[in-house]
Write a protein that binds this DNA or RNA. Sequence first.
DNA 1: GTCAATAACTTGACGATTCAACTAAACCGA
DNA 2: TCGGTTTAGTTGAATCGTCAAGTTATTGAC
Lengths: 171, 171
Amino acid sequence: MTEPRWLSPDEREAWLRLMAVTMLLPTRLESQLKRDAGLSHFEYYVLAMISESPGRSMALTQLAAQTNASLSRLSHVLGRLEGQGFLGRSTSSSDRRASLATLTDAGWAKVVASAPGHAEEVRALVFDPISTRQVAQLSEICGRLLATLDPEHELLALAADPDAGSVATHS
Amino acid sequence: MTEPRWLSPDEREAWLRLMAVTMLLPTRLESQLKRDAGLSHFEYYVLAMISESPGRSMALTQLAAQTNASLSRLSHVLGRLEGQGFLGRSTSSSDRRASLATLTDAGWAKVVASAPGHAEEVRALVFDPISTRQVAQLSEICGRLLATLDPEHELLALAADPDAGSVATHS
DNA sequence: GTCAATAACTTGACGATTCAACTAAACCGA
DNA sequence: TCGGTTTAGTTGAATCGTCAAGTTATTGAC
């Protein structure tokens, strides 16, 4: 094995802080959604993704890519969400292997009801503490990281979250 | 319910990117450690934390706070790591309610063997793609977020990760 | 056109995490 | 010092995620 390139002290400090954020932020979002909407963050994200899609309907493989989930996990979760009446599954007419997950009215209502509380939590935890300039810096930095982490831009759908998007403008 | 404060377009874009990073980065770290060391990221982190502690030993409650885990989760994980021979548990002499988790030689060796590959992954995924100035910006931004997310600085132990710290300087 | 290979899921078993008790020790107030 | 409360940790059941098949449909080579 070749000699590893260790982190500099500044990099180490930045790394410790970034890791702390990546551990704590999901925990907080999870708590808020579980408490106020009875959904896990992943479940909310799935419903939100579908709600942004034309026809409130999406193929599972595309949904799996956009949510960073395995098809297996998605299948299990969709089963539960279907059982709760938030969505239905149907076979695609163009490709009979493919399933489409489609939001029910109840599922749409759930997203609409849950989004404001979620958005408020995001604002309080992420955007209130930092300046406008730092928002731009954060966006640029994450963009660079995503060039490595997600070169195909599978996760960054055009409209991936209703927090400031169609739900707001529709209401 | 009061009118929610929605995110601006720039904030929304930054948020989507940050969320993508917080989803993808842990997945990648998990894969590397699982593949090369047979450990989950959480297991590695627990071992690394203990390895940094004086006497390679730590009380469970402190360890739980520093790893953002429930005591229950920690107890289950320590049981597995103990079964693999990486650590042992003993009762504290000063407080007989408290347990101390102590690294075995095998546990120390495991951390030393696993750290370089992990550090290399962190460098490749996080620091290679961004400039020195951006490292400072990222550190500052995460520092601000942690003032809200972790006001007691429970997660940011003095030495929380051996990647660029004592393991490197000791070797 | 046929057949192998691939792709899109589903399923069930196993492993890990969470949740809700429960035990035991220490603290603390009167 | 007695008893109530808090703190530390464990345990087991239920939930959730991962992994390894398995099914069905499409694609591509010939």
